[in-house]
Design a binder for these strands. Structure first.
Lengths: 124, 124
DNA sequence: GTAAAGCGTGGACCATGGTCCACGGTCAAG
DNA sequence: CTTGACCGTGGACCATGGTCCACGCTTTAC
């Protein structure tokens, strides 16, 4: 799979793929194809980009994503440290779920107000 | 409540409060106190900033937040249009919930792998 | 074989979401 | 009545996450 294909499959631009690569988010998921110097992207790279897209949509920064992926690939971390790191990220995901719930309540309340004809104030 | 108090209560900087104000996110929630030209912030403004913080943490842009708030305050929108707008935002929140679920699964799988001793690949 | 489409590299540019700084006015303690 | 903490304004600056462009090479379609 070359850059054009992976980009359109992942729903991002070629430039974005190259940018993620420069940021170290794809690393060994994309190898240069020696004969013609076109890079070859694996299915892993595609899943990786989709993961990044999801994470980004939730307000995670590329730096945070890179930290998790980077820690993964370099064997510098003991399994115990990896467990700690993942659990930390899971906690963050749960915090986001909480924020999401707060927002949903605010929006639902706003909807109720509008439907009952009282449309003055946006609930917090 | 003046800017220093609202900023520290909301956990943001004074500059951030001023920035949000310039972006039209606080509008009539902060009035200039005429005597000394210090601005007076209401409890509504505080809740507003907290709402912005939550929304931002979930990847909503200030522009999106401003659109919802702005549509609210200007009485240009009929209740029907407001309903449409809110339901649209609720759909976005649900999409984010889906992304969150995807991420949670990826992280849980990663945790499983680490715990079973197979620590090579980050699942998508 | 020639043209169009695709690729890699490098660098300029851009929008978003702030942060920092300097200036001058204001308020509160001593 | 001065000193220090706070405020408003304006503008420069910054990091993040891209986007765009020009260049020259490759591959694919005709």
């Amino acid at each position: 799979m070359r850059i054009g294909e992976i980009a359109s499959r992942a729903g991002v631009s070629r430039d974005t793929v190259r940018f993620y690569e420069r940021m170290g988010l794809l690393n060994e998921a994309a190898q240069p194809h020696l004969s013609n110097n076109y890079k070859e992207y694996s299915a892993l790279a595609l899943r990786r980009i989709e993961l990044i897209t999801h994470a980004k949509a939730l307000g995670f920064t590329l730096r945070e994503i890179a930290d998790v992926i980077g820690a993964w690939e370099q064997e510098a971390l003991a399994p115990g440290e990896k467990r700690v790191l993942i659990r930390e990220k899971i906690r963050e995901v749960e915090n986001k779920a909480h924020s999401l719930a707060v927002l949903r309540v605010a929006l639902s309340e706003a909807l109720d107000k509008v439907e009952s004809g009282c449309s003055d104030e946006l609930p917090a």
